[in-house]
Design a protein around this nucleic acid. Structure first.
Length: 310
RNA sequence: GCCGAGGUAGCUCAGUCGGUAGAGCAGGGGACUGAAAAUCCCCGUGUCGGCAGUUCGAUUCUGUCCCUCGGCA
């Protein structure tokens, strides 16, 4: 048995066929599939967030899918810890961790680590959000410029999310984000084979359109309706997924189903475009054509054999 | 057929008291260290419905025609 911690990462645009490829790999190697998608964690939305089906999950163990309630939120830091735990478990069992997902930040956090910033108390975050509402972004921005001028210069003045983040870290820890970012990160603990399904937007479009139709046929609307009954709060973290937002708009009578579908498609496409921007500059990625198993398989085979020797 | 409201960027619309036009969304490119399916940045020439008239100059005023949407018939 080897002590090298080898993992496979399977990335790619939403709807490009990551899950299907993972299943094919899992049929040939003893894998544990581990989710690295920030939306597929929600228990209420298995259809809309395209979680693997029961049949697909039957092929091998699947981890970190559909375990969070709609009101609960997850962060890159928490996710990274959970993910590491599952990866280590799989390795102990002699299984190949197959990390599948499209959330670039989560994949990077897992492989390259994050600054060792403690979790920020809920109270601090809520207070700052309240301040943002009352005083506006410009006023928070002024505070940040005083407290962490370097980070303030690095982000755009119009970016509420990053301004808030920097302020909450400073408020809760007494140190600036810049200070934290200069701390050594936990070193990458894994040797990763990064596979990316290569696909252009034009080729993805028909697949996305079809996937939305299939989701509706599979009961996406009912899924949203049911979720709304148990969690009638559109600000809840679970409701922020693409598809959920648009179906909710329809359910609340803001527009018709046709319009919801159109918005759903456009927003999914826009998201895929952002993923493309993120992934295409990743130099470690081994790009493989969509719909094919063999290219991925041969990469995995040699990766696996190297591990067996090491 | 009559009355009213309109026809401006792929879509929804703003505007020009006459000097050839912007916003949002869509689209393209990019960023990304704990909300990341998030958040944010950069990129806008289009017979301003057609034709004619007034004018140095019309998308803006006038006439006429076409089209759309309401109301009355």
């Amino acid at each position: 048995m080897t002590s090298v911690s080898r993992v496979i990462v399977l990335a790619g645009l939403t709807g490009a066929g990551k899950t299907a490829l993972a299943v094919e790999l899992a049929k040939r190697y003893p894998c544990t599939v581990i989710n690295a998608d920030s939306r597929q964690v929600y228990a209420d939305f298995p259809i809309i967030t395209a979680q693997p089906s029961l049949e697909e999950r039957a092929v091998c163990p699947h981890e970190l899918y559909g375990f969070l309630a709609c009101r609960e939120k997850i962060t890159a830091g928490v996710f990274m810890r959970l993910c590491q735990e599952r990866v280590d478990n799989a390795l102990e069992q002699g299984r190949l961790p197959l990390i599948v997902g499209g959330t670039g930040l989560y994949l990077r956090s897992l492989l390259e680590g994050l600054a060792p910033i403690p979790d920020i108390p809920e109270q601090v975050r809520n207070d700052l959000r309240e301040k943002l509402k009352e005083q506006g972004l410009a006023s928070l921005r002024m505070v940040l410029e005083k407290v962490d001028p370097e980070y303030a210069a690095a982000i755009h003045p119009n970016d509420p999310q990053r301004t808030l983040r920097a302020l909450e870290v400073h408020t809760a820890t007494g140190k600036s984000l810049t200070w934290w970012h200069a701390r050594p990160v936990v070193k990458p603990r894994y040797t990763a084979l990064k596979l990316g399904i290569r696909m252009e937007l034009a080729a993805l479009e028909p697949l996305l359109a079809r996937r939305i139709d299939l989701m509706l046929l599979a009961g996406a609307l009912e899924e949203a309706e049911t979720a709304w009954k148990s969690c009638p709060d559109h600000d809840a973290p679970g409701w922020s997924s693409i598809g959920c937002v648009e179906l909710l708009g329809y359910l609340r009578g803001e527009y018709g189903l046709e319009r919801a579908r159109e918005l759903w498609f456009r927003n999914t496409r826009a998201y895929a475009k952002r993923q493309l921007t993120w992934f295409r500059k990743d130099e470690d990625m081994h790009w493989i054509p969509p719909g094919e198993v063999e290219p991925a398989l041969s990469l995995v085979r040699s990766f696996w054999e190297q591990g067996a020797e090491g």
